[in-house]
């Protein structure tokens, strides 16, 4: 199984042009118009290399979630450019964005968003059925340590377990990008650490570019790179030279 995993990881890495996963230039997003307009992004210029684990920090309203939604193809920018591996996704239509999400992006949300009527295995299968080169659902669940809970419904799982099912579901299609919006936001510290460990395993094994948005400063310790948002702009990008293992993090 480890060989299989490495092989698939290799396939996922193929096709990198210049080692840059996302690059944005002059990215802006305005909600509403006129006097009531809210400027969520005021010109974001950033390059995010492939395969890195990136932690995005920032206060509420700093624009980090908006940024994540735009590069994940959930929302459209008002101005500027978003390039994913040489392709401008800022100009893509609804159909292309659906295709983009389906092929390349895995999402993990604060509230898990599992299908309550499907078991853990089936929630993952939901995605593998429409993916091109997926892991087996049981393998994806094994990566997050849930091989014993395949037949359980979300209603029978704890919050941490539900979030790990959500991670398994996001990674089962071997996405190039894994986008996590406050993945530990609804969890206590020990449970949150288990979830971060699962994310790290995925990033190590599949080499998916992983973005974790969080309020939690301590999570930054496990990142390759830390991006800090403030007032709709990138205030700071810092490379982390001394990465900590998630199990040494607590809050």
């Amino acid at each position: 199984m480890p060989e299989a995993r490495t092989k698939r990881a290799a396939t996922a890495r193929a096709g990198k042009a210049d080692g840059i996963c996302f690059s944005t230039r002059g990215l802006t997003k305005v909600y509403g118009h006129g006097t009531g307009a809210v400027h969520a992004l005021r010109g974001v210029d950033i390059e995010l290399p492939d395969g890195e684990l990136i932690v995005v920090l920032g206060a509420s309203g700093s624009g980090k979630s908006t940024f994540l939604n735009i590069i994940g193809g959930l929302d459209r920018a008002t101005g500027g450019e978003v390039v994913f591996r040489g392709r401008d996704i800022g100009a893509a239509g609804q159909r292309e964005l659906t295709e983009f999400r389906r092929r390349h992006v895995g999402f993990v949300f604060q509230f898990y968003n599992l299908m309550p009527s499907l078991t853990a295995w089936e929630n993952v299968a939901l995605v593998t059925e429409i993916a091109e080169n997926p892991l087996k659902p049981e393998d994806a669940l094994a990566m997050v340590g849930l091989e014993q809970r395949l037949g359980h419904f979300p209603g029978q799982l704890s919050g941490g377990e539900q979030q790990r099912v959500a991670i398994a579901r996001a990674v089962a299609k071997q996405p190039s990008v894994l986008l996590c919006d406050e993945p530990t936001g609804a969890l206590d510290s020990p449970t949150g650490v288990r979830v971060l460990e699962a994310l790290k395993t995925v990033n190590d094994d599949l080499k998916s570019t992983t973005l974790i948005i969080t309020h939690n400063q301590s999570v930054a310790a496990m990142a390759d790179r830390v991006v800090i948002f403030a007032d709709g702009r990138v205030r700071e990008v810092r490379k982390n030279t001394a990465k900590t293992h998630p199990k040494d993090i607590s809050w």
């Binding site: 994940g72 959930l74 659906t98 999400r101 092929r103 968003n113 599992l114 995605v127 579901r169």
Partner: peptide
């Protein structure tokens, strides 16, 4: 929420 999640996962509107 479920339907939105499915859209995020890459399911088309038809699906």
């Amino acid at each position: 929420r479920e339907l939105a999640s499915l859209r995020v996962l890459g399911f088309s509107r038809g699906a």
